[in-house]
Design a protein around this nucleic acid. Structure first.
Lengths: 200, 200, 200, 200
DNA sequence: AATGAATGAGCGTTCATTCAT
DNA sequence: TATGAATGAACGCTCATTCAT
């Protein structure tokens, strides 16, 4: 039992360290030696827990997605779909404020990573993104059924827009230095999503 | 004069080649040898025109931004700010449809590239982004002044939302395989920007 | 006593496992982990019995040589030196048929192993080879004394030829897939050794 | 042209250096850095001429085999098959005396090299060995047809014996320090091959 | 100015060996 | 004494960049 706990602790420590290092340097510039040093273990030790650098990265991604997903999932029981949207967005923003570096990591997959052959990662991304989208679709469908949002635009299209607004807000937050207060932007975001820019 | 033209032609040829290669492989996986081969020149020749790999990348970015900016600039003379938005978005989408690979390149900067020290690129990105934003801000300010859009949300905030909608649309387009028709999504996008998701 | 027996049993089990693994992969490609796994013990355990990988190898060699030597020794009491040769060769071939892998191991020392500094192994080889040669020399000397073989060629030279014929036969046997029947080639070999290729 | 010559010269220089290093240290212990240093080039340069370490090795082997084969081939026009055997053996021994290190290299393939998966090398070996054997078979068949050697043993079997005698002689020569005089052992060897050890 | 080969620093990964439990 | 995880030195190979021609 102790063994198992120790192993798990090592694994987590390495993932934590890797998250910091990847967040600081990006996938390519992060060296396995950096990660090991940050975790306070020998270089070889990392390989006792992960097959290679890519798997370290993949594991962080998976762990993070799982975490965020679970936290968002909690709010899906809210009756009002609009409230569900607000709560989900707020939760996602809160998570980012707590784990700033993670986002940098998240973003870093968007591009340089595994461009061509190694679409594997992208597949993983897509799969995870799909889970979020499924929640979003369900909520929007519910809202449409209740007449709360327009039905002349598909929920898929609306979900794209909603995620766009969310991502843009996050990007801007990161660009402006991750100042506290991101989570307060959830409600204005949803308001805009609902009402648009047209003067009332 | 001929000299100058020849130099310019070489330069352009290399940038064209590099754009294709970066678009295909991403910054990290693209080798200088690949670029040289694609351009039909020797590896060393690339270094007669660009200091290093990074400068090749930077130059593509700059050239592209300039191109897009000029094409968007043309529409800024439109009287109606809403029309300006529509035209600008349409123009940006049209450009992407014509130069698909460029976007991949653009995206590739989002992440792995220049993560830490090399914030230089990001500065360049920010600068260019700022130019677009300035246009966007001006248009939105104009629209607000004419009472076409709400004034209880800052134009800066609205610009963020607008760019978010645009980016999300582009992302989705790329993810679904760059099928023709992106430019047709400009109007629905602006409509949504103006009206939001609320049932009318 | 039990202790000692247990230790000996462990040692033998590890050597057996190592013989299989070395035979399968060769010295370089065989990992200590492989050997430990094959023996059903932990990696560290191997080091309780052998100083290092090299000593494991050396021990196998020694054990094998001892075994073969003892089996060959039995036949040295035969009166007729020619019969002694036949019996010895037959015995060696029989051993190889029973322990195919061992030969692979034996061969694997011929080359990559211990090339430079590590001449130690070669010394051990030479020493063991010398024991076989001593038997061979004695037999040939006996045969020469009885006028059974020519005396115008030194027994040392004849022993070299005899071992060459033996090795070549073994090599060919290995190259053709270790098919059963090697031991049947002992007599034709000795016949050739005695009579040569000249048409009678 | 100069280019081609220069390239060829580099290639040869690297192969020469590699032959010395492999001969000194064996395949495994020879480092690419050693080879590069011995050749007086940078480590990376070796990779401009050979895909990897294995290919360097393979190339040496091939080059050597070709050389020896050509030298032996010259003597195949001799009328008398026995003379052909003598000349071929003498030629092979002469080559070894001139290129001592090569044999060590040759031997080093016998074992540690490419044990399991990498049977490729062995295939190459077998192929080259086959060429020598073909010559040997032809000569022996010729001798048998003329009634010079016995016909109750297959030429294939006799070729195995002949190569065994040759290899054993070489081995002994190497073991005793590569003293000059190897080529003088060709005739006694053939004599033994023909007459065997039986007292006349 | 173009060429294309030489350069060599740099890094992911392996695995024999050690050591705390 | 067995365990099995931690260790870290070692090395093949890549590729951006330089430079002689």
């Amino acid at each position: 039992m102790v063994r198992t706990e120790t192993r798990a602790a090592y694994r987590e420590a390495i993932l934590d360290a890797a998250t910091r290092v990847f967040g600081r340097l990006g996938f390519q510039d992060a060296k396995m030696a950096d990660i090991a040093a940050e975790a306070g273990v020998a270089a070889g030790t990392v390989y006792n827990y992960f097959k290679n650098k890519e798997e370290v990265f993949r594991s962080i991604l998976q762990r993070t997605h799982e975490l965020v997903y679970q936290r968002i999932l909690v709010h899906q029981q809210l009756e009002d779909p609009i409230e569900r949207m607000r709560a989900s967005t707020r939760e996602a923003f809160a998570f980012l404020e707590e784990h700033g570096a993670l986002f940098l990591l998240y973003v870093s997959i968007g591009g340089g990573f595994d461009w061509a052959q190694k679409r594997v990662e992208q597949a993983l991304m897509v799969e995870n993104t799909a889970r979020y989208l499924a929640l979003s679709h369900a909520t929007l469908r519910d809202a449409a059924a209740r007449g709360l949002i327009r039905s002349d635009v598909s929920v898929e299209q609306l979900a794209v827009f909603l995620s766009g607004l969310t991502d843009a807000t996050i990007f801007t937050w990161v660009r402006t230095g991750c100042e506290p207060g991101l989570r307060d932007q959830a409600d204005p975001l949803i308001d805009f999503f609902l009402n648009g820019a047209r003067a009332p």
